[in-house]
Nucleic acid binder design. Structure first.
Lengths: 248, 248
DNA sequence: CGGCTTTTTGAGACGCGTCAATGACCGTGG
DNA sequence: CCACGGTCATTGACGCGTCTCAAAAAGCCG
């Protein structure tokens, strides 16, 4: 077995045990973006919350519900029989998840941080869709976005080098989180390096090395775990699309 | 640059030049599966055809049309700046393609063989959807299937070994093409080993070696290029999900 | 402060990509 | 119909990049 099988297994999954994490403020998003919103769903939602490393739903669960994140982050992942893990995607405050699955969930949705979400019953959503063309379009658009992100990820995993993957990841995240240029382009990543590795098809060691390399080249700096300052976003964009890396 | 960049470039893309291929009979599918069909679209379709290695649409084209394949096969692919290629998926007779793209196509759709397809104008499809709940559900289901296939592919590319990828590929194709158990499980693959490599995130050499290995272990045999006999489908399924390979 | 978990760095192994040569296949043209 | 040329498939030898294993450093919490 070659690719990043779990290193040590005692009971369930020691490799992915809990670790501490600051509680994220609740007012993050959830608020309606005017116009292109899921506003029609408001009436049928239930507020739920979920602690760090607990699951919103699991692979094999019937897909009765879908969710919109109010605060906190979620990873959508699956485990192979021998412990190898792949994270299909991350979800951030404001993101919708779970509509994608048909009948049965194909992945686990695990809270990376404490999570507050609004839960919607699928059959109610479907019923609303029958009459509400606006909601229909919004959900359809969501599916298209997910698909397009998945396909981009296929290209990344199939054909991009380590450096391109890391650079792409940082650029994508800087677009999804608010990149604070007032602070020189600082972002706060909710996920650990291990999560990043399992999203990008790498090992944690390889991710660390690539990040260290970027630090040495002054493209980024990492004041604390989970905080990354992107000094040269344009350089990162270049690296993401195949530009040669010039180290120190 | 590490991963499978193009080997030699003179003009456009010598690596993907044409090669001969038997014309596939036209009566392949296109016929309605009863019940869950795109029947409502029949009135607005136009028959188009497209020669081997020509494109149905290209990356960047505005996504005005979507297509249903009557006969022939298509690859959905993209080229990175330096010639690396990734094939996101293959489409076979009966398959729908292009609805996935929103606004602009993100990939090239290239005919692997001569292709006959029915082309539908997106705005007409959308208009029909407004009134036809059945069609809406069918298209929504299609999006869900595509998404689920993409996510499975992400797992394959991110975490599976060469052997698992090849086995998964063969198993999947045996399910999509008709696997003729009368002939001992023979399938006819429309795509070349190079296409397979670019779909699975490998090089053609690695694909060849993995296939040779399966031949040596009598799991498959390859009477001619594009024809593969799956002797031990159950063993392939095992390999696809991580079972140890026992060579000769 | 002390113990734990996670991250980081280093050394070595191995798988897969690269390069190169041979062989098979196909279409073309004599 | 067969010989020729070109493309693609296949196999081998080798090197590089990423994984593996291991140990040290850094966070985090009691």
């Amino acid at each position: 077995m070659a690719i990043n099988a779990a290193r040590m297994e005692t009971s369930s999954n020691a490799r992915f045990a809990r670790r501490p994490w600051p509680v994220v403020a609740g007012e993050a998003v959830g608020a309606a973006r005017p116009g292109d919103d899921f506003a029609a769903l408001e009436a049928i939602g239930t507020r739920v919350s979920c602690g760090r490393n607990e699951t919103l739903f699991e692979e094999g669960d019937s897909a009765k519900y879908c969710y919109r994140l109010v605060s906190g982050s979620v990873r959508l992942c699956t485990l192979l029989a021998d412990g190898r893990r792949q994270i299909a995607d991350f979800f951030l405050p404001g993101d919708f998840l779970g509509i994608v699955d048909f009948g049965v969930h194909a992945f686990n949705a695990e809270a990376i941080t404490n999570v507050v979400a609004i839960r919607y019953a699928r059959n109610q959503v479907d019923a609303l869709c029958e009459t509400d063309a606006r909601l229909r379009r919004r959900i359809s658009q969501h599916l298209h976005e997910q698909l397009s992100a998945s396909q981009a990820h296929i290209v990344l995993l199939g054909r991009q080098t380590v450096r391109e993957r890391i650079a792409s990841f940082l650029v994508r995240m800087s677009g999804r989180l608010d990149l604070d240029m007032g602070k020189g382009g600082e972002i706060e990543l909710p996920m650990s390096p291990l999560d990043i590795a399992d999203n990008l098809g790498l090992t944690i060691e390889t991710v660390c090395r690539a990040i260290s390399e970027l630090k040495r080249a002054d493209v980024i700096s990492v004041p604390s775990t989970h905080r990354i300052v992107l000094h040269k976003l344009s350089k990162l964009r270049g690296l993401a699309s195949g530009a040669e890396f010039v180290g120190v």
